[in-house]
């Protein structure tokens, strides 16, 4: 499986660390509602298909990435920096591209 890092280009999955489900929204830290925290920690959609995920390019530029991966085929349909909202803006060397 390859993940195309917006900075580094296509890299082997062994360079990346999975950081979990990208759909989760951290509850208000002031919240003491056990149901809310239980849902945050344990409830997962577990879809058979496209899945929002957070990965870190730990063995490369170390950026955190928002990845959409198909859980049935491992096809990666979208990668962007997790800190950005919207499409990736840093085009890097796609395979065979010039500087």
């Amino acid at each position: 499986m390859l993940i195309t890092c917006p900075y580094c280009g296509p890299r082997d999955v062994s360079e990346f660390a999975y950081q979990g489900d990208g759909n989760r929204k951290r509850p208000d830290p002031a919240s003491t509602d056990p149901e809310t925290w239980n849902a945050y920690v344990y409830d997962r959609l577990n879809p058979a298909g496209a899945h929002n995920e957070i990965w870190q390019h730990a063995g490369g530029c170390r950026a955190h990435l928002a990845v959409v991966r198909d859980t049935l085929t491992h096809e990666v349909s979208s990668v962007r920096f997790a800190r950005e909202h919207g499409a990736p803006t840093h085009g890097r060397r796609k395979s065979g591209a010039k500087a």
């Binding site: 890299r11 360079e15 063995g59």
Partner: peptide
Amino acid sequence: FAIDFSSAAFPLGSGISTTHHDIF
């Protein structure tokens, strides 16, 4: 390294970060 080292993908002067067996 699982890297394309051809000059088309890795031009003169440019740099990368990668790992060999988890060694940066």
